[in-house]
């Protein structure tokens, strides 16, 4: 009876007792979800264009943030440092295509996946060698003050993060749907061989998609790095993207956003209202439970493509 009370009565009474706090929890969840989506987007881009789960996406975010801070430490102004870092990420995309992907053309996806594991370790080591392992403060001028509206606490940084994610999705949507390159990317994603047969160069597409994923990683690295300092645990943010991808689907840009928001809100509500009954610290695994519950009804994720294979 006590257990039933803890799980099915008390949390709801708690919500009813302090509705403003409940709104704060939802807002907190949305802001966390936006941050997860930023990481998930990078995974989606590469998976969408090549069918490869890029294990190195979290490390790409770390490497981008390390590079940005490193360049800023030389005294370079933030906007210039941003451009230079973006250029480094594009350069990295060329290197990845030439040295990692090209030799593995026509190999199984699992081989390409394994190569991204190697890439992750290499980039982590390279970042350590180039920029050191100290925690670095990243300040590109994003305001961080909190303020209250109607008794609800809001934070400027989180609002900027939400705006950034929204802008990123809009830009990516335009890029995918209304540009020639974007259409080529979608063609490659749909069918490699058909795309090649109509003259779409796979190598160029890979460079483009890794460049875009690198720049998305830079944005994720900036937002997460501003929050925690730039340090090697930044690569672990990939873990936060996995339930988002499971839920939103590996091939959908909107799925990454909606999935992120659902996971963010779900895990915060779970932690605050149901966490105490389970000893606390449930949000990490609760996110996966939430995602798996969705999978029962939609195995391809909320927005993923349904794969039908005819026998």
């Amino acid at each position: 009876m006590g257990v039933l009370n803890e799980f099915f009565v008390l949390p709801f009474l708690d919500i009813a007792e302090a509705p403003l706090f409940f709104i704060e929890v939802i807002i907190g969840g949305l802001s966390a979800g936006v941050m997860y989506s930023l990481v998930a987007l990078g995974f989606v881009l590469i998976f969408k264009a090549s069918g490869v789960f890029n294990f190195a996406q979290g490390v790409l975010a770390l490497f981008a943030a390390l590079t940005l801070v490193g360049i800023m430490e030389w005294g370079v102004p933030a906007p210039v440092a941003l451009l230079l870092t973006a250029a480094v990420m594009v350069g990295l995309a060329f290197a990845v295509e030439r040295l990692v992907l090209r030799p593995l053309v026509n190999q199984e996806h699992i081989i390409l996946f394994m190569s991204t594991i190697g890439l992750a370790y290499f980039l982590e080591g390279l970042g350590d060698t180039l920029w050191g392992s100290n925690v670095k403060k990243l300040d590109i001028g994003i305001p961080e003050q909190s303020f209250e509206i109607g008794g609800v606490l809001l934070n400027q940084f989180e609002l900027v993060a939400a705006a950034t994610a929204g802008t990123l999705v809009a830009v990516l949507a335009v890029f995918f749907h209304y540009t020639r390159v974007g259409r080529a990317l979608r063609a490659v994603a749909d069918d490699h061989q058909a795309a090649l047969s109509v003259g779409i160069p796979l190598k160029t597409i890979w460079v483009i998609v890794w460049s875009v994923a690198g720049i998305v990683a830079l944005v994720a690295g900036i937002m997460w790095g501003s929050k925690s300092g730039v340090q090697f645990s930044l690569s672990l943010i990939a873990l936060k993207a996995l339930p988002v991808l499971i839920l939103g689907g590996f091939t959908s840009v909107p799925g990454a956003i909606v999935g992120g928001l659902i996971i963010g809100v779900g895990e915060k509500i779970g932690e605050v209202y149901w966490g105490p009954a389970l000893g606390g610290a449930i949000e990490n695994w609760f996110a996966y439970v939430l995602a798996l519950m969705f999978l029962v009804f939609r195995p391809q994720g909320l927005f993923g493509e349904k794969i039908i294979e005819r026998v």
Binding site: A18, V25, G28, K227, S233, L236, K240, K268, G275
Partner: peptide
């Protein structure tokens, strides 16, 4: 409690606020 690695602690600090 905060789970490893602790990069996301919004729920913890909302509870502190409350």
């Amino acid at each position: 409690p905060v789970d490893h690695p602790g990069q996301e602690q919004k729920a913890t600090w909302l509870q502190i606020r409350r």
